[in-house]
Design a binder for these strands. Sequence first.
DNA 1: AAAACGGGGGT
DNA 2: ACCCCAGTTTT
Length: 348
Amino acid sequence: MTLATQLLDWYYENARDLPWRQDKDAYKIWVSEIMLQQTRVEAVKGYYQRWIDRFPTPAVLAEASEQEVLQYWQGLGYYSRARNLLAGVREVCAAYGGEVPEDEQLIRQLPGVGDYTAGAIASIAYNRRVPAVDGNVLRIFSRLFCLESDISKQATKREIAGLLHRHMPDSSPGDFNQALMDLGSMICIPRRPRCQVCPLSNLCEGYAREVQDTLPVRPAKKEPVLVQLAAGLVLQDGKYLVRQRPAKGLLAGMWEFPTVELTGGQAADRCLTAVLWHEFGQEVDVGEEQFHYIHIFSHRKWDISFFSCQWLSGNGVMKEGQWRSLTEFSNMPWAGPHHKVALALAES
DNA sequence: AAAACGGGGGT
DNA sequence: ACCCCAGTTTT
């Protein structure tokens, strides 16, 4: 019995039934792999089905507008993935006749496709014997071989890619890679791995040494930065002032209620008034603070106050931004969870 | 080599 | 609260 045999035997008995495992269509595998980058399986399922219903083939997606594509991505995060996927699909239609190339190196050239995703697509859709090193593989192999090097380091990833490649079977390399995903999801989980029911426990050096709970070794976490924002719900004639974020950076291209970063502890209402005047050339009457909302993600912490505003004089010229009803705004790709909250507030 | 990039679910 | 996820791109 080899590692691959033991793993595949377990996989064929215990494989998860996932929407993107219905067939081996390379485009569908591609879509699923992009959605799954840094995103949980449970979160992806609904988005994937909706996406395939609307964009069933590369040709259909290539014809769609970026705004609509972003809308279908709304809430999934990392929006550059959607842009890259759209650009990549257009490239496939233009350069490869709408068929995803079979060669891993060519797949790797597509925007948004890194080493992992190229390996996953090539192995799953085209049965190529290429490794796909993701967080699951790093965790599983660091335990299997008791590797104590930092898995965020490039050298560690290369080492594990080599080990993985050595252990891949000649047949069903795609199943092998997917089996590692399922093992990492159900058995070799980050905390308190279920070694008692693991099909590879007899091969696992980490388990033998009883150090599986200390692996893998990750980099020390960094302190989040606090960013204080004030957001305005500026109303005129039943429509709210919204603007589009810059094409690069945080939440690129997403629509939002106007916000202003508060530095040095200024009063939020005065600061918001000044920015609205500066950006949109008109005076507003900032009302009472509505509530306070805090959102945290990996490296930043947003502390946001919302204000309701009345648009005053009608003389100024709006330099940027648009007026939208709440319904219209809801149908645009909008930024972040704080605007979900703002929408709920505005609707109440 | 390190930072930037979202959001959600598990514990 | 904290962890961390089917990672890639930019700096």
